[in-house]
Amino acid sequence: MCAPADHEDGLAMLTTRKHLPPRLPALPAFIGALLCLTLAASTAAQSGNNAVDPTSLIMEAEEFALEGNYDAALPMYEQAIASLVSEPHRQNQLRYRYGIILNALGAQRPDLYPLARGQFEAVLTYIESSPGLPFEHSAARVSSAIAHTYHQQAALQTNPNKRAAMLRHAYQLYTSATEQLRREEDWQNLAITSFNVGQVCEWQGNLEEAIQWLEQAVALDRRHGFADLEEDQAYLTALRELVNPERPVGNTAI
C-alpha cells in the first residue's frame, strides 16, 4: 500500500482527476431516460392519498439543476428518492445519479462529498444484498465511485492528517475495485481506476507505485483504443521524469 508522505509538488494540482464512467450525462437527455425509469412508480404514487409523484419531483429537480439552483434541486432529489422506497431498483438508480451530481458539485461545496458517499454506499449495500439481481452498475464500479469522493475531497483538505486518511480510504477502495474490474473484464473502468489509484499514490509521495499504476492505465488505453491514451501517457512521462530527472524520457511505448 502507498505510504503517506508529504509530497506537495505542482504536478498533483496539474493532473486531471477523472470522473468514473458513466460520466455525468447532459441533464436534458437524462430527463427523458429518468422519466421512463419512474413512470411505474409515479402511477402507483398517484393512486394513494397524499402520495408524492417522483416524476414531477425529478423534472423540477433537473430544471433547477440546469439553472444552477442546487439549493432548490437537491432537496427534490432527496424527496424523489424517499418516494421510491417501494421500488428499490429505481430508487437506487436515482441514488447513483444523485451521488454523481453531488460528487460533481463537491469542488464548489466540499460538504456534499459525504452526502455523495452516502448515496453510493446505499447503492453498494443494495447490490451486495441482492446477488444475481441485474443492476446497471457493478459493485466494483460503485466502490470506485465511493473512492472517487475521498480522492476529490482530499484535494481540498487542508488538514494533513485528514487528507492522508482520505487518500488511504481512496487507495484501499480503488485497489479492491481493480481486482473485480479485471475479473469482469471491464477494461475501460479498470483503465480509469488505475489512473486514479496512480494519482492517489503520487499525492501520497509514492512515485514508484504511481508509475506502475499509470503503466497499467496506458497499456489498457493502447490495447483497447481508449481516448485517454495521450493524456495518460503524458502523465506517466511526467512521473518518470520526476523519479529520474537526469534521464530524458519521451512519450514512447512501454
Score class of each variant (00 low, 15 high):
C201L: 08
G118C: 11
G250Y: 09
K18T: 04
A44G: 08
G68R: 13
H148E: 09
N206C: 11
I192Q: 02
L207W: 12
A164K: 03
L207I: 13
E67C: 07
E179S: 02
N196F: 10
A41P: 10
N244H: 15
H7Q: 12
Q233R: 15
I146M: 04
P28S: 00
Q180D: 03
A227W: 10
Q216Y: 05
T55A: 00
A72F: 14
D53F: 00
D71T: 13
Q172N: 07
S47H: 04
H89N: 13
G118W: 14
H89W: 14
P4T: 04
P88L: 13
F195C: 11
A29P: 04
P25L: 05
I127M: 01
D111C: 04
H19T: 05
G99D: 15
P114R: 08
L74N: 02
S176N: 11
D186M: 00
T178I: 05
L239C: 06
H137Q: 02
W213K: 03
A122Q: 07
H89C: 09
L242R: 06
A33V: 14
G225E: 14
P131S: 10
L11W: 06
L14E: 08
E209I: 15
R183P: 03
E231S: 06
P160D: 07
P75V: 02
A65Y: 11
E230R: 10
L190Y: 12
L124R: 02
C2R: 07
I58E: 02
L214C: 09
L11A: 08
T175V: 02
A82P: 14
S138T: 03
G10S: 06
L94G: 07
G198P: 13
P245C: 15
R222Q: 15
L105F: 12
P134R: 03
T16S: 04
G10I: 01
W203A: 12
P160N: 04
R23D: 12
I192K: 02
Q199T: 15
E62T: 14
M1Y: 14
G48C: 07
R182P: 03
R17N: 03
A238G: 05
S42Y: 00
F195Q: 11
A191F: 15
S56L: 00
P134N: 07
P114S: 04
R109G: 10
N92H: 14
L102R: 04
Y150K: 13
E184R: 01
A217M: 15
A219D: 15
L236T: 15
P21V: 02
N103V: 05
L57P: 01
